[in-house]
Amino acid sequence: MGSGCDHPGWGSIETGGADMKIPVAAAIAIAFGLVVLAGYFLPLPELVSLRTILVQWSMIIASTALFVGVANLLRVHWFKLRKGGTASAYSFLLIASLLVTLVVVGLYGPTGSWSLWIFNSIQFPIESSLMAILAVVLIYSAARLMRRRMDLFSLLFGMAVLLVLLGSAPIFGIEIPFLYGPDGLRSLIVQIPAVAGARGILLGVALGTIATGLRILIGADRPYGG
C-alpha cells in the first residue's frame, strides 16, 4: 500500500502554512517561543528572568483556560438541554452538579468539608468505578486481540501480558519461583525489554516533539489560527 499522501481522499499538499501573511498572533507566538528557547539554552541573566516571567504567564493562561473549558462544557450541555432528547437529562444533571459544586466550593473552599464530601462521595467512587470497568475492558481487549490482529507481535504481546500478570502476585499463596520476586522473569521483562522499548519510543516521541515545536516556532504550523 502506498503512502497516505497518495490516497486521493487527502487531496494535494497545501501550503496553508506558507501563507505570506503572518498575522500578529503568529508573530507573537514565534517571538515568545524564541525568547523562552533562548533563555533555556543561553545562560544570560536577562533571558533567564524573562523566561521565568513568561513561564509564569503561561501558568496564568493555563488556569484561565481551565475556566474557559468549564464554560465551554457548560455551554455545550446547555444547548443539549435546550434541544431536548434522551440525553438532555444527563446534561441537566451535569449542569446542576456543576452549579452546586461551584456554589459549595465557593462557600466552603476547596478543602471544606462539604466540598470534600462531594468529592469523596460522588467523584471519587464514580471514577473508581470507571477504573473497574476499565479493568474489564482491558481483559476483554486482551482476549480479543488474537481475533482482531493475529500476528507474531500480537502473540508476543499476549504472552508478555500473561507473564507479567502471573509474576505480579502469588497464586493461591504460592510464589512461582522463576516468575515472582525481584529476580524473577517478571522483573526481568519489566526492567529490561520494557524499559528499552519505552526508552526508544520516548526518544522518537522526543524527536517528533522537537520537530513539531520547531514548526510552530517558525510559523509553519499555526494551530492558534490566524
Binding site: A135, I139, Y140, A142, A143, R144, L145, M146, R147, M150, G158, V161, L162, L165, L166, S168, A169, P170, I171, F172, G173
Partner: peptide, 30 residues
C-alpha cells in the same frame, strides 16, 4: 493483596482462555 492475587489469576485465565478461543476461531475462519 489476596483479592488482588486472585483477580490477577482470574484475569490470566480469562485472557488465556479467551485468547485461545479467539485464536482458534480466527484460524478456522481463515
Amino acid at each position: 493483596w489476596d483479592a488482588f492475587s486472585l483477580s490477577v489469576l482470574a484475569a490470566v485465565v480469562l485472557i488465556a482462555v479467551g485468547g485461545f478461543v479467539n485464536l482458534v476461531t480466527n484460524l478456522l475462519n481463515a
